[in-house]
């Protein structure tokens, strides 16, 4: 952590934000015409693209289908030019497999899979530019894509990262802050019931600081859910105007 000061004395971070401020959020639904649902999300400099196909018949082996629920299949991949150093393999390495598993678990908790027995829902997420908070951008983009595809869910799934520097919790970390060696907590939340779909934390943190950190992440997620809600309503308005005429 030498050199870069993650939090200045006046309370400003590296990119000029305050401790609990989120990055600029822009999203768009219905980006691709061919997929059942798609969404594009920009969280600061992190750009994520999510595409949903389904619900459709289970592809591949029939033994994977469940008799009472839908199977959710996720794949997380990064574009080779998304990181500062060029990545050789877009997907298939352990980190991407782990992320795909986490996304699958997050959405299995949120999507009402009992409505589609013996079918499969595919969620594909691609990171076009990576600047910290990859998992959160993916989850948010995938939520919008699922809404665009018309698949019923319990609630929006909002995800955000939070960190801890000098007794102050920071919300929505960028890449420099994540790799600075401090703590990173990723939280995926259903805002209305405040139930946590996935919690993940790396690096050391004293136990007493955990409640404050989780509180900061929860508040950030709730703020994010408002933005997502706005995007969905706006999209609906646009679409209904178009179809009416």
């Amino acid at each position: 952590m030498a050199g870069l000061e993650l939090l200045s004395d006046q309370g400003y971070r590296l990119d000029g934000r305050k401790a609990t401020e989120l990055r600029k959020l822009q999203a768009r639904m219905g980006v691709f015409g061919q997929a059942d649902g798609s969404a594009y999300m920009e969280q600061g400099n992190t750009k994520a693209l999510a595409v949903v196909y389904g619900p459709h018949e289970v592809r591949g082996s029939r033994s994977k289908s469940l008799h009472d629920r839908a199977v959710i299949n996720c794949q997380y991949s990064m574009a080779t030019f998304s990181t500062a150093e060029r990545k050789r393999r877009p997907h298939g390495d352990r980190k991407s497999s782990e992320m795909s598993l986490h996304l699958k678990q997050t959405f299995e908790a949120a999507v009402l899979t009992q409505l589609y027995p013996r079918s499969q829902i595919d969620i594909y997420v691609k990171i076009l530019q990576s600047d910290g908070g990859n998992y959160s951008a993916c989850v948010n983009a995938a939520t919008l894509a699922l809404v665009d595809a018309g698949i019923p869910m319990r609630d929006y799934v909002c995800a955000c990262t939070a960190g801890f520097v000098e007794d102050t919790p920071l919300a929505d970390l960028c890449h420099a802050e994540e790799s600075g060696g401090g703590t990173t907590l990723s939280l995926a939340l259903l805002p209305r019931s405040e139930s946590i779909a996935l919690v993940q934390m790396d690096a050391r943190l004293h136990q007493d600081h955990l409640p404050a950190l989780m509180e900061a992440a929860t508040v950030a997620c709730k703020g994010l859910s408002k933005v997502l809600d706005d995007v969905v309503r706006q999209h609906l308005q646009e679409v209904s105007v178009q179809t009416r005429e």
Binding site: F32, S38, R59, S77, D122
Partner: peptide, 16 residues
């Protein structure tokens, strides 16, 4: 050159 046919295009491109 490296061409990445991502799964976004069609579910058949998933994995390998």
């Amino acid at each position: 050159f490296f061409v990445d046919c991502s799964a976004n295009a069609t579910p058949e491109f998933e994995g390998r």
